[in-house]
Design a protein around this nucleic acid. Structure first.
Lengths: 254, 254
DNA sequence: CCTGAGGAGACGTCTAGACAACTAGATACG
DNA sequence: CGTATCTAGTTGTCTAGACGTCTCCTCAGG
C-alpha cells in the first residue's frame, strides 16, 4: 500500500478547549476528521502515530486512542495493530453478472478504469483450464495477466486464458489497448457473456499484495469465471484476485 | 421504566481465561451477551453496575467498561451516564397512514396489543379541539385517555376527543373492550380514515414518563391526528404520546 | 542471494487512581 | 404537600505506567 506522509501540520494543541464541556477525545476526533475532510490526508494515507498525536495535542495516549477509536467506529479510518492508522478508502462495488465488464463496472461508479498488462505467455492447457475451455489437455492457450485499476488504484489482478490459435491476435491488440473486451473484438468476438463465476478467498502472495497495494494479512477475494461467445463457445477462463479491503463483490440474480 | 434485578448469577470469574489469546474484555462481553441471550436479563432490565462486574470478573473497571462499550456498539445494551446499563429493547415500528389502527399495527409485528382506559371525562371543546372537530367552542366532547401496549409494554398514551352526543355510548363500549375502533363501531362508525397527522416531540411529564416506563430525560414523540368517518365528518381528534426509545414512527406516502 | 533472527516501531490490553458529570432518592423547609 | 437541596450511586473522562502482540526492516549467516 502506498503510504503518504503529509508535511502540513493538522490541528494544533491550542485547539483543545479543556473544561468546556466537550470531551478532549471528542475534540481531537473532530480535529482529525476535519483534516481528513479537508484533504490533509488522502484515502489510504497513513495517519501520524498515536505517539505523534499525543505530543501534538498534549494529551495522554489513551485519550488519543479514544479519539481514534471513535473515528474507526464511524468508518472514517482504519486502525491496524503494528502497522498504523489509515484514512479509510472508498469500497468499490463490483457487480458480477451475466455481462460483467471491467471498464463498465468502474465507469458506473464514476471512476476512471485503467489496465496494465503484466505478462503474456503461451502455456499448455491443463486441469481446470482445459476443462473450463472445453479443450483437450495440452492444447495451447494464451495466458494474459492484467492489473485492473480504478483512478490509478489497483483493484484486481486478472489471469485470463484464451484458446489458441483463435486468439493469437490478442497480444497485438493488448499492446495498443489493455482492454480485454477490445482485444476479444479484434479477434472477432464482439460479444460474450459470463457462464459461471465461483467466488472464494485466500491470502495473497507477496507479489499479489504488492501489486494490489494491500497488506499481506489482508485476504484476496478470488473469482473463477468462464465467458462464452454468442455461440456458447468458451472464449475466456479467468482467475481474478480482488483487493478485499477495497472491493466488494455484488452478485445479482441472473 | 421497570428495572429488574435478577437473582441468578451470570458468568463467574472462573470463566475468564487469561493468557489464552482472547482479550479479557472480549471474554467478559461474550459472557454478558450469553446471559442476555439466555434470558437472565429481559429487554429493558438494568444490568449490574460496573463495580459489580468488576468484582464478579475480578478485573479492572476499565476492562469492564471496554466490554460494555463493545456491547453497546453492537446495539445489545444501552449505557446511560448516572443511571446504569440496560438491555436494549426492540424498537417497534409504528406506521402512520390513512388507515392507522393501533391493534393492526401491533399485530403486524407479532405482538399482542392491549389497551387500558385511563380516564373518560366530558369537557367543553376549545381551541384546537373545536377547530379540528369542526365544532362551535363550548360544545361538549368526550375525552378518552387510553394507554396502548404491546406485549404488556406501554407504547403510547392516546388522548381522544369525540363529539357529543353522537358518541355518548362510547364509555359503555370501552368498559367492555378498551378498543377505540370497536367503540366507534358501537356508535355507528364502522370505518374511518386519518385526515391529517402532525408530529413533533417534547419532554414528558412525570406522570407520562411513569406510564410509558421511560426515563424523564427521554423525549416523547407527539402525534396530533384527526380521523373522519366515511362522510368526511371528523369523529376523533387525538393527541398521542409515544415512548421515543421504544417506538419509531414510520410515515408512508399517502 | 535467500532465509532467519533480532530489534525497533506501532498498536492493543490491563491495571490503577482521581476527579467530573449525571441521576435518583431522601430529607428538610416553607 | 410541594420544592429545593444534599447525598449517594453510577457512568464518563483523563492521566499514567507496564507489558503484550503485531509488523516491518535490517543485518548476519549459510
Amino acid at each position: 500500500m502506498v503510504e503518504v506522509f503529509m508535511t502540513e501540520t493538522p490541528a494544533a494543541p491550542a485547539m483543545l478547549d479543556r473544561g468546556r464541556g466537550i470531551a478532549l477525545w471528542h475534540q481531537i476526533a473532530s480535529a482529525i476528521e476535519r483534516d481528513i475532510i479537508r484533504g490533509h490526508w488522502t484515502p489510504g494515507a497513513r495517519l501520524p502515530t498515536e505517539a505523534t498525536f499525543t505530543e501534538r495535542f498534549g494529551v495522554n495516549r489513551h485519550t488519543v486512542r479514544r479519539a481514534m477509536e471513535s473515528l474507526e467506529q464511524r468508518g472514517m479510518i482504519r486502525v491496524e495493530q503494528g502497522r498504523g492508522s489509515f484514512v479509510a478508502e472508498d469500497v468499490l462495488e463490483y457487480p458480477l453478472g451475466s455481462r460483467t465488464r471491467f471498464s463498465e463496472n468502474i465507469l458506473r461508479q464514476k471512476k476512471e478504469p485503467q489496465g496494465r498488462i503484466l505478462g503474456i505467455t503461451t502455456i499448455a492447457a491443463e486441469g481446470a483450464i482445459a476443462a473450463a475451455l472445453g479443450l483437450r489437455r495440452g492444447r495451447p492457450v494464451l495466458r494474459v495477466e492484467r492489473l485492473g485499476m480504478a483512478n490509478g488504484t489497483p483493484i484486481v489482478i486478472g489471469t485470463h486464458h484464451f484458446p489458441l490459435p483463435r486468439f493469437e491476435a490478442m497480444p497485438a491488440s493488448l499492446a495498443q489497448n489493455a482492454s480485454i473486451t477490445v482485444a476479444l473484438a479484434a479477434c472477432g468476438v464482439r460479444d460474450y457473456q459470463r457462464v459461471r463465476t465461483r467466488i472464494t478467498a485466500r491470502m495473497p502472495t507477496a507479489d499479489e499484495a504488492t501489486l494490489l497495494h494491500q497488506a499481506r494479512i489482508r485476504p484476496l477475494i478470488l473469482a473463477e469465471a468462464i465467458n462464452a461467445d454468442a455461440e456458447g463457445r468458451p472464449v475466456d477462463f479467468t482467475l481474478s484476485c480482488y483487493a478485499s479491503g477495497r472491493v466488494q463483490i455484488v452478485v445479482e440474480g441472473e
